[in-house]
């Protein structure tokens, strides 16, 4: 998927790229600069409604919500990306091997995954966190583990589908090595399916991170994350609705943007 090499633009791709582009831009900008400090409190400006000074208003400590959203996007996206990267990479490796070779290892891995799927994912992440302790790194690891099974299953089923394809039989006849068959001959063909699951996984990771932070076992204060902000805002829903709306709508925006992007990319590879 090189840019400029005859990409057929479609409206999903354009809309998705615009939406996610804006979000990423804000997040990157947020690393270096925010309109206001995200931690400095100011008692005089508590619950200021959205205005030209504070376009998203201020929170219960008088902090600028827009600045915190910028930081929060960064945290949330970073965590989600790492989670998807870990679980996606493990999914490809384990899914490819179990799917292609099958046999007893496949059976065992699948039963473990069934067992993992038996628990609600947040509960499972809770268990991992409670063993390893809170913190951003442990949050990433625990969500990574929770997200792994779905990737393994998807990659595995694609490998099972393709391992008996004529062109793979043919590669075997040529004497192509196993590793090359797995990762050069088969892997590119599962790209579109895998990409969709990465995008869905990414969205779920954002929601899971927000959920975990909302429960107080994710990102710790005073660091900003979208989920953490939501949980902080819930007590002031009636008095300062903008406090909850800003991070909430941002999550919707990100998830929608990525969904559109994934749809666009999917159409691209058709």
């Amino acid at each position: 998927m090189k840019k400029g090499s005859g990409i057929k633009w479609n409206k999903y791709l354009v809309a998705g790229l615009c939406m996610t582009g804006l979000v990423v831009l804000l997040a990157v900008l947020g690393i270096f600069w925010t309109p206001y400090s995200t931690t400095t409190m100011s008692a005089g400006e508590r619950f200021a409604a959205p205005s030209l000074q504070h376009i998203f208003g201020t929170d219960n400590f008088g902090r600028d919500i827009f600045s915190r959203v910028m930081k929060g996007i960064g945290t949330t996206i970073l965590i989600s990306t790492l989670v998807v990267a870990i679980s996606g990479a493990a999914g490809i490796l384990i899914g490819a091997l179990t799917g292609y070779f099958g046999g007893i290892v496949d059976e065992i891995v699948m039963r473990i995954i069934d067992a993992l799927n038996g628990f609600p994912s947040i509960l499972l992440a809770l268990v991992v966190i409670s063993v390893m302790g809170t913190g951003q790194r442990n949050l990433v690891i625990s969500l990574g583990i929770v997200f792994m099974p779905s990737f393994i299953r998807i990659v595995r089923s694609e490998f099972i589908r393709l391992r008996d394809a004529d062109y793979i039989s043919r590669a075997r006849l040529m004497g192509v090595g196993r590793a090359r068959i797995l990762f050069v001959h088969i892997l590119p063909n599962i790209f579109s399916t895998f990409w969709v699951s990465v995008m869905i996984g990414f969205n779920n990771a954002i929601l899971a991170e927000s959920g975990m932070s909302y429960l107080g076992i994710g990102v710790q204060p005073p660091q900003a994350s979208l989920g953490k902000m939501l949980s902080d805002a819930q007590g002031y829903l009636t008095t300062a609705p903008w406090y909850a709306l800003a991070p909430g709508l941002t999550i919707v925006w990100i998830v929608l943007g990525f969904s559109l992007l994934s749809e666009g990319i999917q159409r691209l590879s058709r």
Binding site: Y167, I168, R170
Partner: peptide
């Protein structure tokens, strides 16, 4: 070597024709 019935499933769709023709040589 083998030539298959279905020309649609016997060529790897993610590769170029050149790559497909060269792959047997690489493997050898």
């Amino acid at each position: 070597q083998m030539i298959f019935q279905d020309p649609y499933s016997s060529l790897n769709p993610s590769k170029t024709v050149g790559w497909l023709l060269e792959e047997p040589l690489r493997a050898r």
